[in-house]
Computed example of a mutant assay.
Amino acid sequence: MNSIIGIVLTLICVFGGYMMAGGKLEIILHALPFEMMMIGGAAIGAFVCGNDMHGVKSTLGDIVAVFKGPKWKRQDYADLLCLMHELIRLTEESPVDLEAHIEDPENSSLFQKYPRILASSDFVELICDTLRSMLMNFDNVYQVEELLDKQLETMKEERMHGSHALQSMADALPALGIVAAVLGVIKTMASIDKPPEVLGQMIGGALVGTFLGVFLAYALVGPLATRVAQIREQEAFFYGLMREVLVSRLHKNDANLCIEVARRSAPHGSRPSFTEVEDAIKALKQAA
């Protein structure tokens, strides 16, 4: 919602201020389709040229995420803590039962309690792989911790690809605007015999290209890239929550302490309270 409000506010202030100052919107509207075709088409073409199909689809998904917000909500943080508590408890009480859950999470009654988490196959796979490594009794617990950190870093880097791609597009847009403006000047020079009022409109239309390139770069695409990076950074906290639980368990802490360590590492706006987590865990024990 904030992104939509920001875009609308920008458009109103820029074009409203231009019209209040006596500017004629007709000149911009007349040149807009042609300039947008040149600038937008070149930017999209360069974007497609510089990214594989997976990167293109990922970036489109990132743009959708800007308007939907982060994937993981406050309730998901509480659900993850409950899921990790049950998994850690099994590592203490019944490793054999734990193996059944992590070998087939899709059919696990434990994972099925949390469908939003289960739907994230990459994340579930990471949890299961790490727990499997823990059950293998590595001689050095830091081996498992290092392996987990590397996987999380790789996941974060992959998810930041859309932000980098959009920022590259934003960096290129002012130059593409100049290209469109130069083409407009070339067109104007070819019509130098026209009356001054006609030449004035043609020059104004050419300058629309420069305006569009700068405007799109700094008022639209650049902020989108920044917001995508913010969302992916915030989602990384969710994956880090799982890391805190498992690393704490690697150091032989009991389940309740592992969960509390992770809870405190959650971002403030999404952090469930101690009472909320405690009540949810008690409800799980009663249900069991």
Rank of each mutant, 00 (worst) to 15 (best):
K24L: 04
V64Y: 10
I192G: 00
L207Q: 08
L212V: 05
L152K: 11
N256C: 02
P196G: 08
G16Y: 14
S265I: 01
M169P: 01
G200R: 09
L135Y: 06
E233A: 15
M134Y: 03
L135W: 05
E153N: 12
E26V: 08
K113M: 11
L98K: 15
G41C: 06
V214W: 05
E99R: 11
F138E: 01
A78P: 01
A225W: 03
D97P: 00
A119I: 00
F111R: 07
G269D: 14
N107P: 00
C49F: 13
H251A: 09
A283G: 02
I102S: 04
I28Y: 14
V221Y: 05
N51P: 04
K71L: 13
L90S: 05
P70V: 15
E235M: 04
M36V: 14
L110Q: 09
C49V: 13
D104F: 02
D76W: 04
I231C: 09
A206N: 04
R249G: 09
G162E: 09
E99W: 01
K282W: 05
C128N: 09
T154V: 03
A280S: 08
Q143K: 05
C13A: 15
A181L: 06
V56A: 07
G22N: 07
A31S: 14
G6K: 14
L212Y: 06
L32H: 07
L90N: 04
V124C: 13
P70Y: 14
P70K: 15
A280I: 02
E197K: 11
Q286F: 10
L224R: 06
R227A: 00
N140K: 13
